[in-house]
Design a protein around this nucleic acid. Structure first.
Length: 481
RNA sequence: GUCCCCAUCGUCUAGUGGUUAGGACUCGGGAUUUUCGAUCCCGCAACAGGGGUUCGAGUCCCCUUGGGGACACCA
């Protein structure tokens, strides 16, 4: 049996969006699941926009998602010498021809067609030039492109793994250009030659390439090359059902990363767009996905990526992480938000692991550890106004808190059990429910109305700081009346 | 405009002629908890419309509608 070879072929224009990532994931999964090879090829054919910087982003994102490849990265732009022999062959066999039409001529014809609401196709003006005419034009130094010669009737067809039999009338296709005036290959041509050269057996890409596929199979045919297996994936659309784009503010993979999503969660979410395992599992490791992966399970309709579900999935992954890893992962966020320094984090690792333990089931992203737990690092927060109304207004609260503070200050260790005993005893003494004391203390210690258990917070924030924060709150409450 | 494709809860989906149309996220309710969250339980919510075919259509065919994509010497 023929070796299975797929390619991951991003183009370094724009940015690395979730659609590109999803296509990469499916290629990767297919190659791995079937014991094939994956090839990374950067499609940077003659585009001023493509830069090393954009290429680096692609590489970075793939690595972050842990999608690796067996060969490459190859750069299309560095393979220009690969194409001429194929062009020669097509020309010699009269399966392609030189076109001397100028861009201006073509543009005006296209405009004309559009004005008349006609569908524009190239009029094949140069298709049947005699050899003498061609020679004369060449001698006169006329610039030319190379166009492929397509049948003028009948239908082009191929079988897609997801969409089934696809057909298109040849009248709808024109003798499209394969080589530019400057000798460089057009995308559709370069892709086919590269795929042939790299012995790609399966082409897996977005369904926005279906129209290209009709053109590309003509090149394979003209070259007498066997067709690869085509698999077109449904597209990922924006919530308004239009195409994902940078301009409209759609997030790139790097943005998801920077907001604190885990690569495993993003990958898992993306793999579940258009595909689902037979048993309906959702949270799956790469190994589980590989085991269950099967193209017959691909749903042909386009879909919308739901960031809310991604956050849910991310939180599931977050909760499953061990505390050590979690501290490692949140460290950059703490530093970025100026909550801690690298050195400080290193010295307080054990303590951070306990903090993280208390925060992990309350966070959807890594960023939220910094957001929701900022009071573990800084005491100069504002009190939540709603909380103040609800929790700081009880009669005589300041005096009661002062008593708690004094009792707390007697024990320098201030473990959570001690703190809990003190609060409960005081509540009983005051004739209050423990909650009536717990909530104001939480607000005093964190500025917030929710969060981890109060006594865990007391222990983690620690004695002198707890005292300081209670003092500040007591003063604040007194200033209210 | 032309061509191609698609159509099950708001979203992601299961379903391949006979199902109370299932699951997940979101949302609502309950249990639990010092709060929030997590967890568990319950609930709201869909076969776009119309014709066929068939004893029987979410499932097959046609039309309509809706949506998407492609129409470059871009990739």
């Amino acid at each position: 049996m023929k070796e299975i070879r797929v390619r991951i072929a991003p183009s370094p224009t724009g940015y690395f969006h979730v659609g590109t990532a999803r296509t990469a994931i499916f290629n990767f999964l297919y190659a791995r699941a079937k014991g094939g090879k994956s090839i990374l090829r950067i499609e940077d054919t003659n585009l001023e926009k493509s830069s090393q910087e954009m290429v680096d982003i692609i590489l970075e994102c793939l690595k972050w998602l842990k999608i690796d490849w067996d060969e490459g990265p190859y750069y299309q732009s560095k393979r220009f010498d690969l194409y001429p022999p194929y062009v020669e062959k097509l020309l010699k066999e009269k399966k392609a021809y030189r076109c001397f039409c100028t861009p201006e001529e073509l543009d005006s014809k296209r405009e004309e067609a559009q004005k008349n609401k006609q569908n524009y196709t190239y009029d094949r003006a140069c298709r049947d030039l005699s050899e003498d005419e061609v020679r004369a034009n060449l001698k006169a130094g006329k610039k030319f492109t190379v166009r492929i010669k397509l049948p003028t009737g009948g239908e082009a067809k191929f079988t897609d793994e997801v969409y089934g039999d696809l057909t298109k009338q040849y009248e709808e296709l024109d003798d499209f250009i394969i080589v530019r005036t400057d000798g460089s290959p057009i995308y559709n041509f370069a892709v086919v030659i590269d795929d042939i050269d790299m012995k790609i057996s399966h082409i897996i890409r977005g369904n926005d390439h279906i129209a290209n596929t009709f053109k590309q199979i003509e090149i394979y045919k003209a070259l007498d090359e066997p067709l690869p297996v085509f698999t077109h994936l449904p597209l990922i659309l924006r919530p308004d059902r239009s195409k994902v784009s940078k301009r409209k503010g759609d997030k790139s993979v790097t943005e998801y990363r920077d907001e604190g999503y885990l690569p495993e969660a993003l990958l898992n979410s993306l793999a579940l767009l258009g595909w689902s395992p037979k048993d309906g599992r959702e949270i799956m490791t790469m190994e589980e996905m590989l085991e269950a992966f099967d193209f017959s399970g691909i749903n042909p309709n386009n879909c919308i990526f739901d960031p809310v579900k991604l956050t849910w999935m991310n939180s599931q992954y977050l909760m499953a992480l061990d505390n050590h890893t979690l501290v490692q992962l949140i460290a950059p966020f703490l530093i970025k938000d100026d909550l801690a320094t690298k050195y400080w984090i290193e010295t307080r690792w054990q303590w951070l692991m306990r903090v993280v333990e208390n925060l992990k089931e309350r966070c959807g992203t890594l960023q939220e550890f910094a957001d929701n737990g900022s009071y573990f690092f800084k005491g100069d927060f504002e009190y939540d106004p709603k909380g103040v109304k609800k929790r700081f207004m009880a009669d005589g609260l300041a005096d009661k808190l002062e008593e708690v503070r004094l009792e707390f200050s007697k024990d320098y260790e201030l473990k959570k059990d001690t703190a809990e005993n003190i609060v409960r005893e005081k509540a009983e003494k005051f004739g209050l429910n423990p909650a009536d004391l717990i909530h104001p203390i939480r607000l005093a210690l964190t500025g917030r109305t929710g969060g981890p258990g109060l006594f865990e917070i007391v222990e983690l924030v620690g004695h002198p700081e707890v005292d300081k924060r209670l003092t500040r709150a007591i003063e604040y409450i007194r200033s209210l009346s």
